[in-house]
Design a binder for these strands. Structure first.
Lengths: 131, 131
DNA sequence: TCTTGACCTTCCAGTGACTGGAAGCATTAG
DNA sequence: CTAATGCTTCCAGTCACTGGAAGGTCAAGA
């Protein structure tokens, strides 16, 4: 497979695939004209990385997951720990977003047609104590 | 207030506060020695921005939210529209994050978490068919 | 008074994770 | 044969910071 086909099949742009090679995620062979040739294992790795990224894992976390993926002797508890930490972070974000949505919704309702200079809701939004 | 105190009270690093000034979020006065002097309104603005940023709004979105925050005529329909679009975006993000969390949680539950190498998390991430 | 250290200033460079573009070979379709 | 597409490398830019250098300011202590 050339890089274009791998990009199509993995959903990862060619630029990004080359970048992933740069940072050591893959090391595809080259043929005589210098083109990268990808094996199925490399395609699978890219799909793996793409999915991990879409789940919000950053590059270093992906590297750790890839190492575990490659390591035949790995224990699954290592993987589970990484995933659990990530779920905690996601849940914190969800909580924050719900709070922000509720605040903004109140803001929209309460500020509609209100031309007074001081809005208590805005004051509350930026109040340190409600942080 | 000097920048250090504002940083402490807003939770935003001094570097970032100066950056926010660069991009026009604030325009703190200076005293004779050149130090920035911050009013309470600027502190509140920073807390507001910090919260919006922590929820994934980018700088331009923050600028729009700040306009809502700053706008003495708020209640006008265009400002309200901006806020509503932001609420929609927040809801989309919440949905995405919940999907992410559910996927990960499901995988964690299915993962033994012991020293054995079989791990459903990695299996799922590397399974081409579930792409 | 001098000095030490914390705090402030500006400017420039680097980060992460790409992304875009230029310049130049290789391959393929018409 | 030519044009279009695809591949290569390299360099630069993006966003939102973040770190460091070099230097000015200020309050406290010997």
């Amino acid at each position: 497979m050339n890089i274009g086909e791998v990009a199509e099949r993995s959903g990862i742009p060619t630029k990004t695939i080359r970048y992933y090679e740069d940072i050591g995620f893959l090391r595809p062979k080259r043929n005589e004209n210098g083109y990268r040739i990808f094996e199925d294992t490399e395609l699978h790795k890219l799909i793996f990385i793409g999915r991990a990224r879409s789940l919000g894992f950053n590059i270093e976390e992906c590297r750790a997951l890839l190492a575990l993926y490659d390591d035949k002797e790995r224990g699954s508890s290592d993987v589970k720990l990484i995933a659990k930490q990530h779920v905690q972070e996601i849940e914190r974000k969800i909580t924050d977003l719900i709070a922000m949505r509720d605040t903004l919704t109140h803001l929209i309702d309460a500020c509609a047609g209100d031309h007074r200079p001081d809005c208590p809701i805005l004051d509350n939004l930026s109040d340190v104590k409600t942080n």
